[in-house]
Simulated assay, not measured.
Amino acid sequence: MPKFLKDINLKGKVAVVTGATKGIGRSTAISLHQVGASIIAIGRNKNDLSSLKKKLKIRIQTIMCDVNDYEKISREINKIKKIDILVNNAGTNLPEPFLKVKKSSLETLLDVNIKAAFNIAKLCTDKMLKLKRRKNVGGSIIHTSSMFGLVAGPNRSVYSMTKFGIEGLTKGMAVDLAKFNIRVNSVCPTFVATPRAKKYLANKEFKKYVLSNIPLGRIATESDVATAITFLSSNASSMITGTNLIIDGGWTAK
């Protein structure tokens, strides 16, 4: 009988995870490690990187760097011998009503969510293509987007603009890189119980608004997103490229 169920097995694969010190990035690094991948964790906080390295113990390298520092991130990525998977996760949000968006907020969101995401994707893709057998072994790039890259939300006009841009980048890269057998997808979570989101959700009115829009009636966990990213990283998703995996409990289905 043929085997239809493909294993999620990343032994021998090298995965770069940006924004790896907290939240979705940290959980994703742990999840990928659990299925055999070697992890290169990129983040800004030395103590958090050390904590992650201590937890995983083996098959992990850490790089302390701000994703906006192109010169340093370029040098560090060029030092890596091989990359098979990129989880382009680093991002930020500064909720403000459209009419009150500060110039500094606009520039920060564009720099981190668009410019840095593009630069890292390009640097890692260039490194991926240095492997002569790339077309045979394949590769996977996953951008952390948001449900607000698909629909709008209050006080998130600039954030939505950047995440809609990530959706466009995902599709464009997928088309251009398919000939190299490098798949490119995004994940689009709803509100996730990360340290940052918990601050917003501490507001009872805001939490009520969020839960009222999620048909499943609960906030997503870091594991919900990390599991989806791990699936997209593996050969279990070998025919999936140029699309998004929506992890929103039904928010965008309405």
Rank of each mutant, 00 (worst) to 15 (best):
N9F: 01
L10A: 03
G19C: 00
T21Q: 08
A29I: 01
I30G: 03
A41V: 02
N47T: 09
D48Y: 10
S51E: 15
L52S: 07
K55D: 12
R59E: 13
I60N: 06
Q61M: 14
I63S: 05
D66A: 05
N68H: 03
I73L: 07
S74K: 15
S74Q: 13
D84Q: 02
I85Y: 11
N88H: 09
E96L: 11
P97R: 02
K100V: 07
K102H: 07
K103C: 06
S104C: 06
E107S: 11
E107Y: 08
F118R: 09
C124Y: 00
T125A: 01
T125F: 00
K127Q: 09
M128D: 02
L129I: 04
K130Q: 14
L131I: 12
R133H: 05
R133D: 08
V137T: 05
G139E: 04
S145K: 14
F148K: 13
S157D: 07
S160I: 12
F164G: 11
G165H: 14
I166H: 03
E167G: 09
L169E: 07
A174V: 00
A174M: 06
A178L: 01
R183L: 05
C188H: 15
F191R: 15
T194E: 13
K199A: 12
L201C: 06
A202C: 04
N203V: 00
K204I: 09
K207T: 13
K208F: 05
P215Y: 04
D224S: 00
V225R: 01
T227E: 13
T230F: 08
S233R: 10
A236L: 00
T243V: 13
I246M: 09
T252C: 11
